[in-house]
Simulated scan of single mutants.
Amino acid sequence: MNKQVGLRGQYMGKVFVLIAMVVMLGFGYILPVNNVSASAPPPAAQSYYMDTVDTVTLYDMGYQKGLADYKKAGTQNSMVILDFGGQSSPTSLSLFGMPDASLTQVAAAVEAYSRGYWKGTASDSLSTVHIIVGTNNSYTVTYEGGQNFANMIDDINSHNNMNSYSDQVEVDGGNDMEPGYDPASTTIEWVNGYDSVNSYSLYNYGSADGCYHTNLNSGTINYSCNNGWTYKDIQYISWGASPAWPLPEVYDNSGDMAEQWQNIAKYSAVTAAKPMRFSASLTQYAACTSTGCHSELDNTPSQGWSQLYSELYSDSKTKSATNYPILSTDIRWH
């Protein structure tokens, strides 16, 4: 392998991050903002609802992404969700409109994407892609399924580490966890299953369906959401559980979804004493453009990012979240 080692974070130091934040805030220090401005959203990466685990296809997807980053000036850092659908069983994923795939097949596909990206970046050894391998909580949602999913993420990273792809490709688990899909109790069991064996982080790129969405609450009330869920439940699967990071859907033009997540962040800061950090905003503009969607749910990536940033910045209890880079990713159908 002739690539120079680049920067690679695995977001595995969240506990240390939280301790550092408490210490720094206690002494009045503020971490610098890195390339984040309410008036200048970052470029959006392209994420996908996957209908295939064909390794040739995934290699080409990764290669084209790497080549595009190579051709851009400067160092590129982006977050890409590869959503393979819900778990049809604890050992398989449903894909979208295609036959089920085993977790072993999904792992091979992501490994191929990783190799493609690494090759596509050529002499650029510093640009990185953070791949979120995704499922959702709408099918078979079990503790065992969470464990198996975490083990798959470990296997992918072991492969990438051995082949130097991890120099530029970070891989973590993800789940589109939505209150309307499944009861909180079973979704939390899945997260706990993931947490019981994981070595890598878990990103919740879901919604906060039915949650209170004004900016007037104090952060002390555990409001109800759809399907029996509460703020506390969403905070736990997104940040309270040790591997969890929030990557919120911000689809709607009205800004309600951004307000919901700002309220959950406020609840986390005030009641759970755990100020949230947000990895990215997620929009579905490309999916809406290609297949259509509700007319109020087609935020562009810049609109979704700006709504989330502005809501977080607007309140002293959540403003600290904007001291860190918040990326942008937009999903489409493959």
Results as ranks from 00 to 15, higher is better:
D69A: 15
G173W: 15
C293N: 09
S125H: 10
E144A: 14
D60E: 04
I30E: 14
N226R: 14
H213M: 08
T140I: 08
H213E: 11
A241M: 14
W261Y: 13
S78R: 09
Y48N: 05
G180V: 06
D233N: 15
P179H: 07
K71F: 06
M50G: 00
S281W: 01
L31E: 06
D182Y: 10
K119R: 09
S114I: 08
G9F: 11
S94D: 01
I132Q: 01
H294E: 13
K319W: 02
A208G: 03
N299G: 02
S268G: 15
P90Q: 04
T214K: 12
V22H: 07
L31R: 10
G228V: 13
S127P: 00
N253Q: 11
G13S: 12
T329K: 04
A321E: 09
D54S: 05
M24E: 15
P32R: 05
D195G: 04
N175Q: 09
Q4R: 09
G255P: 02
D83I: 00
S138D: 07
D195C: 05
V15Q: 12
N204F: 03
A68V: 02
T52I: 02
N161I: 11
V197E: 07
S306L: 05
D252A: 13
G13K: 08
G97C: 02
T135F: 00
N175E: 06
Y49H: 11
S290N: 03
E189I: 13
M21N: 15
K317H: 15
M12K: 07
C288K: 05
D154T: 15
V197I: 14
S164C: 11
K266F: 05
V17M: 06
A108D: 06
G85S: 08
G173H: 14
Y143I: 10
P275F: 00
N77K: 12
N148I: 13
I264H: 13
S166W: 05
S199T: 06
Q147L: 13
L25Q: 14
V169I: 07
T55G: 01
T135Q: 00
Y203V: 15
D195T: 14
S201F: 00
I237R: 12
T230S: 09
I188C: 11
V169M: 00
A44M: 12
L327T: 04
M162F: 01
M276R: 10
A244M: 14
N136G: 03
S164W: 14
A150M: 15
N226Q: 14
